[in-house]
Design a binder for these strands. Sequence first.
DNA 1: TCCGATCGATAAGCAACGTTTATCGTTCTG
DNA 2: CAGAACGATAAACGTTGCTTATCGATCGGA
Lengths: 294, 294
Amino acid sequence: MNVRQLEYLDALARERSFRRAAEECNASQPAVSIAIAKLEGELGLELIHRHRREAVLTAPGEALVRWAREALAAVRGLTEEAGRFAGVLTGRLRLGVIPTALPAVAGITKELLSAHPDIRLEIRSLTSDEIVDELASFRIDVGLTYLDNEPLGAVTPIPVYEEGYLYLTAEDLPGESVRWGDLDGGRLCLLTPDMQNRRIVEAALRRSGAEVTAVVETNSISALISYVRAGWPSIVPDAWVALYGVPEGMSAVPLVAPEMSHSVGLVTRVTDLPQPLVKAFVESLDPPRVPSSP
Amino acid sequence: MNVRQLEYLDALARERSFRRAAEECNASQPAVSIAIAKLEGELGLELIHRHRREAVLTAPGEALVRWAREALAAVRGLTEEAGRFAGVLTGRLRLGVIPTALPAVAGITKELLSAHPDIRLEIRSLTSDEIVDELASFRIDVGLTYLDNEPLGAVTPIPVYEEGYLYLTAEDLPGESVRWGDLDGGRLCLLTPDMQNRRIVEAALRRSGAEVTAVVETNSISALISYVRAGWPSIVPDAWVALYGVPEGMSAVPLVAPEMSHSVGLVTRVTDLPQPLVKAFVESLDPPRVPSSP
DNA sequence: TCCGATCGATAAGCAACGTTTATCGTTCTG
DNA sequence: CAGAACGATAAACGTTGCTTATCGATCGGA
């Protein structure tokens, strides 16, 4: 049994292709073929259906890859810990982020990167559900998501900042703020219902008795803002405005009555042996940062 | 990085000797020397103080061996799982047992062994503290210990049987039972105070206001019973009597007022990915067994 | 139905690795 | 001071894992 075999198996499970798995591991396709065949021989099991066009794991393969990932995570932990002792933290920290928190991610990770220049970051935009999944299967190390809204999996939450909500429109607004109730009857552009931010907004509107029409739904906040320019107002997280500023010709005012906010923060796997990179990341947040423009 | 290197490191940490570590891994001493040197080279760290006579881990070594054990446990899990799918559960299940529960261990594991003849058992007599330690450092897989008395570590408890207490003496006893209070002023032979059973007995005596003299203290229950023969009564767990029967010329009666019992059971590491061998063991306990003579 | 693309398995050659036995220098012990 | 035990080193050897090149099989589109 070899660590390399486990890496191949993991990549194979993820990519469903010998070629792509080999590429991901910086190896040749036969290397993966042979290594997996040898692993199957050692274990006396078929791990992969080879007759199909798509390389799909068998039931045993599916079960075993979980252990492989567990082992690989430990090996990664070992390597990171070694780097820590050698004075330089190295390795790739894989971060899953919900779309609405993406503008905040640079501010949050700034300290970590400057303190440990050898760390590489991998940022992936994921839904909150995907974050829980990928954490559990060791495909990301840390998630950045809502902490207080919907049930999380078996994760350790670390609050980072409070997300507030702004009303963004192309009109000139008279006041300093808008009440949720004022939006009643409005025609808005909102995120798609599969995104948690949309569900948060819906709940706030419902609580204040406002009914709105979602004229446009999108899962991209950039698209959202472009629709605001085109005339449909929207509700956006304040972090986005902090990053881009208020676009020319638009106004952004806080939504009040009530002034709502939701806690956004990191989630990590629960473990009694924390990954050094993750530990360094969390410690670099001290004192807790709020998102700010660069 | 190689699984074999991690095995060597683990064995080295345990044995504090290159030679013994090599022996434990069925390898030659230079194999271990070279592998560790190579690992140190890869990580850029000194893992072991070599100048001393005793090979002792450095601080980084101590930290890294924890990750190594984590990885090795996952590899073991993978192997066991593979065996499960192949139809035969194989591997060694390492069981740590408090001395007073030793007579029960055969009864508890009987089902597992007959259901899976390829499983090998390793039974080690440990104190309850050691059980928690060795579980955490992956040196045993399951513990058999008291569940309800003193704080356990981060373990999952599974009750197995209730341990009751008998008064064992070489005299003829008139009644069917003895009250704890009746022992006041007695001269007994008891286990040493570092054993949890002794602390349980002390607490029971204190509660019923009885004061006794521990004429002989021992950490071996066999020695205890030999002293009973020699004339000093004692208090023994009922499991021992169930195994050996009441020795010739002695009497054993339950201690009552109150009739006390303590829960004895298995403890396992908390994990969301249970070891197949451990899982099979726990499932083999269904329905819960009580210790019985063979 | 056939051609081309893509997939994974196989073959052959090669370099690197892990292991062994034998031996050396050092350190603790009686 | 002699002997034993320890770990490092050297040399030799078999194995492993990797590469490139190629094959047979399968799927999709004209």
